[in-house]
Amino acid sequence: MARLCFDYGHGGEDPGATYNNREESNDVLDLGKAVAEEVRRHGVTVDETRTTDATVSLSDRSNFENRNTYDYFISFHRNAFQPEQAKGVETYTYLNSGAKSKSLAQRIQTSLVALGFTDRGVKEANYHVLRETKAPAVLIEIGFIDNTEDNNLFDSKRNEIVKVLAKAILAQVEISYIEPTAIPQPEVKGQTLYRVIVGAYSAKENADAQLAKVKSAGFKDAYIKSE
Rank of each mutant, 00 (worst) to 15 (best):
Y72G: 07
T52E: 15
F64S: 02
E38W: 03
S59I: 10
A36Y: 03
V44E: 11
T52C: 10
F73S: 10
D60N: 08
V35C: 14
R40K: 15
A54V: 00
R41T: 06
D53I: 10
T45G: 04
L31A: 07
V56D: 09
D71H: 03
Y70N: 11
V44K: 15
G32S: 09
R50C: 03
G32D: 05
V39Q: 03
T49I: 04
A36H: 06
N68R: 13
R67Q: 12
V35S: 13
K33H: 02
V46G: 05
V56H: 04
S59F: 02
V28C: 07
N21M: 10
E24W: 03
D60C: 01
L58A: 10
E65N: 04
G43M: 15
S57H: 07
A54Q: 11
H42K: 08
L31I: 15
V28I: 11
D60I: 00
F73M: 15
D27L: 13
E23W: 01
T49C: 11
N20Y: 00
T18M: 15
V44C: 14
R50W: 00
S62H: 05
V28Y: 01
S59M: 12
E38I: 07
D71T: 01
G32I: 04
N66D: 10
F64K: 04
E23F: 03
T49P: 01
D30Q: 12
D53F: 01
F73Q: 13
E24Y: 04
V28G: 05
E65M: 07
F73W: 06
T55G: 09
Y70S: 11
T49N: 06
K33G: 04
T51G: 07
K33Y: 00
Y72M: 12
V46F: 02
N26F: 01
T69A: 14
V35H: 08
F73G: 08
E65S: 07
L31D: 07
V46Q: 08
R22C: 14
